[in-house]
Every structure is written in structure tokens, then in C-alpha cells.
Simulated assay, not measured.
Amino acid sequence: MARLNVLLLAIVIACALGVVTSQHKARKLFVELQKEKDRAQQMDVEWGQLQLEQGTLAMPARVENLASRQLQMQMPQAGQIRYIRIGSGAAVQP
């Protein structure tokens, strides 16, 4: 009977250690999950900021201003514009 009690006590202790270990692992994984969720949210915020910045940088008025100021580009005169029809290969003047 004493051997059975010792065996049962050892099994109970082993089970308790298993429960404690699994709870500790679950808590560590939960903390890691929360960190990854926070990181994903930060990336979403950064993505929104980058999209806003890209929209601002690509505004037609800004692009035209930079083209004329930095690259010395200008709008072509009406006589310099040529329209090309796809398929015929012939240039057509307006």
C-alpha cells in the first residue's frame, strides 16, 4: 500500500510539473503574440503614412513644378505635339 501511495504521489507531482510547464509556455506564447500584434499595428500605421506621403509627392502640381524648376522642362507648343494612331503607324498632326 505504501508503494502505491508513493507511486501515486510521484504521478501527481509529475502531472503538476507538466501543468506548470505548459502554462508557462502558453503565457510566453501569448506575450509573443501580443508583441507581434503590436508590431503589425505599427506597420499598418507606417503603411498609411507612406501612402499619404506618396500621394503628396505625386500630386500633379508638384510634379509639374519640379519638372519646370529643376529639369527646365516646359509644355510643348501646339505645333510640337504629334498624335500617333496605334495600328496605322502614321503620325497625325492636330
Rank of each mutant, 00 (worst) to 15 (best):
M1L: 14
M1D: 13
A2R: 03
R3C: 08
N5I: 08
N5D: 12
L7V: 05
L8D: 08
L9R: 03
L9G: 06
L9I: 01
A10I: 07
A10S: 14
I11P: 06
I11L: 01
V12S: 03
V12Y: 01
I13L: 03
I13F: 02
I13D: 08
C15L: 04
C15A: 02
C15Q: 06
L17H: 07
L17Y: 06
L17V: 07
G18E: 11
V19F: 05
V19D: 09
V20F: 05
V20P: 11
T21I: 13
T21Y: 13
T21C: 12
S22R: 13
Q23G: 15
Q23W: 10
H24M: 10
H24D: 15
H24A: 13
K25V: 11
R27G: 12
R27K: 09
K28N: 10
K28Y: 05
L29H: 12
V31D: 11
V31R: 09
V31Y: 10
E32A: 14
E32F: 11
E32T: 14
Q34W: 15
Q34G: 12
Q34P: 13
Q34H: 15
E36T: 11
E36S: 15
D38P: 15
R39G: 08
R39H: 07
D44F: 12
V45K: 10
V45L: 13
V45W: 09
E46L: 15
W47Q: 10
G48K: 11
Q49L: 13
Q51C: 14
L52C: 14
L52Y: 10
L52A: 10
Q54N: 10
Q54T: 05
G55D: 08
G55S: 04
T56E: 15
T56C: 12
T56L: 14
L57D: 10
L57R: 02
L57K: 03
A58V: 07
A58K: 10
M59Q: 15
A61I: 09
A61L: 08
A61H: 05
V63Y: 01
N65E: 07
L66T: 00
L66M: 00
L66F: 01
A67T: 02
A67C: 08
A67D: 08
S68P: 06
R69T: 05
R69D: 11
R69S: 07
R69A: 06
R69Y: 04
R69V: 07
Q72S: 09
Q72V: 06
M73K: 04
M73C: 05
M73I: 03
M75R: 11
P76D: 07
P76G: 05
Q77L: 07
Q77M: 06
Q77E: 07
A78H: 00
G79N: 00
I81D: 04
I81P: 09
I81A: 01
R82F: 01
R82I: 02
R82W: 03
Y83N: 08
Y83V: 02
Y83Q: 05
Y83D: 07
I84T: 02
I84F: 03
I84N: 06
R85H: 10
R85I: 06
I86A: 13
I86C: 12
G87Y: 05
S88D: 04
G89Y: 00
G89L: 00
A90E: 06
A90Q: 04
A91S: 02
A91P: 12
V92A: 07
Q93R: 03
P94D: 04
P94A: 01
P94I: 00
P94S: 02
P94H: 02
P94Y: 01
